[in-house]
């Protein structure tokens, strides 16, 4: 029972994290190779606050706020650099975050923060909160995708110069995507911190950023359901592979490669062509 709860909580948090990047990269077409930084910001803010006596549920708000605020500034940067340049700029932000945290005594430095208080309503309680957050975020993003904002995002992802000629206020749409996406990551991070109850600079490195991007792409850019599914599966895959411990990363790497190589449009693309074949 306890094991399943932990597994499901991991899944729910990862799904939220991946869906938050999906708003930026999937909807709006802005590639981020540094999304783990916002996960990290949320985690650190959340952990510091609950260690200072705040209840977790209240700490989620500032976690989202601080991550979203910094996301806003990164969004401003995205107005200046594009495509691969943007991908590498966001990657740079992630390294700046980790490099900064490493040197801050008050954030635990290299050692990180341990002894993060457990959630008041126990493991099951945390699972419920994580599921609720992920579900709510999924609902919000499904709504967004169907709204005119999603229509605008689609046009920006397609060709932002043309979107402008058609009257779309591209900079502000992009900023919104960054704020929504990074705030979501902030919440996911705060939940993560109280799930594992220890965080350090290495919890939010380049690998984590790449992994979450892989989830979005493997799911199939933009599709909320497929990204959620990919995130759920990929988040626990290494755990399922425990029995072949020595080879688990090898298999993980090959799997990521194989999906891209043989189904470049991800799970969503594969399902679509499967459905077409059935007809």
């Amino acid at each position: 029972m306890a094991y399943e709860v932990i597994l499901l909580t991991t899944m729910a948090i990862t799904v939220l994290f991946a869906l938050s990047l999906n708003v930026i990269t999937g909807f709006c077409g802005q590639v981020s190779l540094g999304h783990a930084a916002f996960y990290g910001i949320g985690a650190y803010v959340g952990a510091m606050l609950t260690k200072g006596g705040w209840p977790l549920l209240m700490a989620l708000l500032p976690a989202a706020g601080v991550a979203g605020l910094i996301g806003f500034f990164v969004g401003l940067m995205s107005l200046r650099v594009r495509h691969d340049f943007l991908a590498i700029t966001t990657m740079g932000i992630a390294f700046l975050f980790v490099g900064f945290v490493r040197k801050q005594e008050w954030l635990g430095g290299e050692i990180g923060i341990s002894g993060i208080p457990a959630f008041g309503f126990g493991r099951i309680g945390l699972l419920v909160v994580a599921l609720a957050c992920a579900g709510l975020f999924a609902a919000v993003t499904i709504y967004l995708k169907r709204s005119w904002m999603g229509f605008g995002f689609d046009s920006i992802a397609d060709d932002e110069d043309t979107a402008r000629i058609l009257g779309i206020d591209v900079p502000r749409f992009k900023l919104w995507a960054f704020v929504i996406g990074t705030a979501g990551a902030g919440v996911a991070g705060a939940l993560y911190a109280h799930h594992v109850r220890y965080i350090g600079p290495d919890s939010f490195g380049f690998v984590e950023s790449v992994t979450v991007l892989a989830m979005v792409i493997i799911g199939g850019i933009g599709s909320v359901w497929a990204v959620a599914l990919a995130a759920a599966v990929l988040s626990v895959l290494p755990l399922w592979f425990q029995f072949i411990d020595d080879y688990k990363l090898l298999i993980y790497g090959l799997l990521v490669f194989a999906v891209m190589r043989f189904s470049p449009n991800g799970i969503a693309g594969a399902l679509q062509s499967f459905r077409r074949r059935l007809r």
Binding site: L249, L250, M260, R261
Partner: peptide
């Protein structure tokens, strides 16, 4: 085989390959 896909696809495939290679070296 991936040249006419979005460059992101090649990027992720490449990352997968990189992880696999590192593991092969370790093994």
């Amino acid at each position: 085989p991936l040249l006419d896909q979005s460059p992101l696809v090649a990027l992720i495939a490449s990352i997968g390959l990189f992880i696999a290679f590192e593991e092969v070296f370790r093994l």
